[in-house]
Structure formats: structure tokens, C-alpha cells
């Protein structure tokens, strides 16, 4: 999937058949593709990447960036709205940035995705037990407790994070921060 010199281009998307029940939800997800960039860990690289999206009118849905295990490189995970521009054009333009070393384009069906959420929810003495119960169902951790609120942490698949956010909403979300999704390719049978 790396961007090489083959004229067919990188990251060819192969649509996979979906089971009927998951069709609607998957259809919504397919608007968004994750592009992960291995970039040189140098000053200004994030600005070059973000600037390219702005300049060319590509929409960024979310973005996460951190150094890799090799300190010379960072990995940027970008969720791209593929309705704003053809994915191939986004990838080809990113490939022209000198600091971008490798591009991996992940179809949502071929990716393991994760996202981290911190959320502070209104929870008085009455509601607290319910909120903690919901947190347990989703595998979230309570990281702070106040008289009228709880702060929870959830690291999970982005859809589970979406769902968690929804079930908490009726209790009153006071503050919320998501990291944006990160992703790695699913391991095939040969991996």
C-alpha cells in the first residue's frame, strides 16, 4: 500500500460485500477513509500537511499525530471526507510533499481503528450510579469524581465511542475531548 512508482497508484480501494444488517451503518462510515502518513519528524511538517488540505479544499474529519517508535519519523492519522475530493487525488497530492515518506490508505473495512475519549458528565448522587454502570458496560474508566460530575475515559473503536457519547448525552455532557481516530491495517492470514 505504500506510495511507490507503479502507475496504478497507491492504496487501491477494493470494496467488500457487507452483511445486510450492517449495511446502513457501514455506508455512513464509508464516507470517511483513514489516511496514515509516515512523515519526517521535523518542524513545520504538520503545517504543510494541514495547509495542503486547506489549499486544495479537502475536508479533514479528524487528525492525530505523534512520533513513531523511530524518533526520526512521526505518524499522522487523518480521517478524510472522501465526498469532498477523490481519495486518489488527496493521496497523490500528499505524496508530493517532500517530508511525507509513506502513505497508507485504509479502507474502514480493512482497518483496526481506535479512538480515545475524555468526557465530563453531570452526575449528582442520584445519577452517579447509572453513569458508572454505563461506563462499565462500555469498558470506560472513571478518572475523576466531583460532587456534581464524573470524568470518564474510553479507548475503543470509534463507533463505540460514538455510541458512548450518545448514551451519556441525556445526563448532560459538560466537557468532551476526542483524539481523532488512529488506525493500523487488519492482519491478513499471512501476517
Amino acid at each position: 500500500m505504500s506510495v511507490g512508482s507503479a502507475p496504478s497508484g497507491p492504496g487501491q480501494v477494493v470494496p467488500m460485500p457487507l452483511a445486510g444488517g450492517t449495511q446502513a451503518r457501514a455506508g455512513k462510515r464509508l464516507r470517511h477513509h483513514v489516511v496514515t502518513l509516515l512523515v519526517e519528524n521535523k518542524a513545520g511538517v504538520l503545517v504543510r500537511v494541514a495547509g495542503l488540505f486547506a489549499r486544495r479544499g479537502f475536508n479533514i474529519f479528524s487528525l492525530a499525530v505523534a512520533p513513531t517508535h523511530d524518533p526520526r519519523f512521526s505518524r499522522i492519522s487523518i480521517v478524510v471526507d472522501v465526498e469532498s475530493a477523490p481519495l486518489q487525488q488527496v493521496v497523490d497530492q500528499l505524496d508530493k510533499l517532500v517530508n511525507v515518506v509513506r502513505i497508507t490508505e485504509l479502507h474502514p473495512l480493512n482497518a483496526r481503528e481506535a479512538e480515545l475519549l475524555l468526557v465530563t458528565v453531570a452526575a449528582d448522587a442520584v445519577g452517579r450510579a447509572q453513569v458508572i454502570q454505563l461506563a462499565e458496560v462500555f469498558g470506560a474508566k472513571v478518572v475523576d469524581v466531583g460532587a456534581q460530575a464524573l470524568t470518564l475515559r474510553l479507548a475503543s473503536a470509534p463507533e463505540a465511542v460514538d455510541d458512548f457519547e450518545e448514551v451519556l448525552r441525556p445526563y448532560g455532557i459538560l466537557e468532551l475531548q476526542r483524539t481523532g481516530r488512529i488506525a493500523l491495517p487488519k492482519l491478513g492470514p499471512e501476517a
Partner: peptide
């Protein structure tokens, strides 16, 4: 020579980078 030009405006039947 610029891959990003191939298909940017008009999808070609044959693209040569």
C-alpha cells in the same frame, strides 16, 4: 511526470507517470 495530474481533471484511459 506528476502523478497527481493524472485524473485530476479528466480520467484517462491510459495514464503514464
Amino acid at each position: 511526470i506528476d502523478r497527481a495530474e493524472i485524473g485530476k481533471v479528466r480520467r484517462p484511459d491510459v495514464g503514464v507517470v
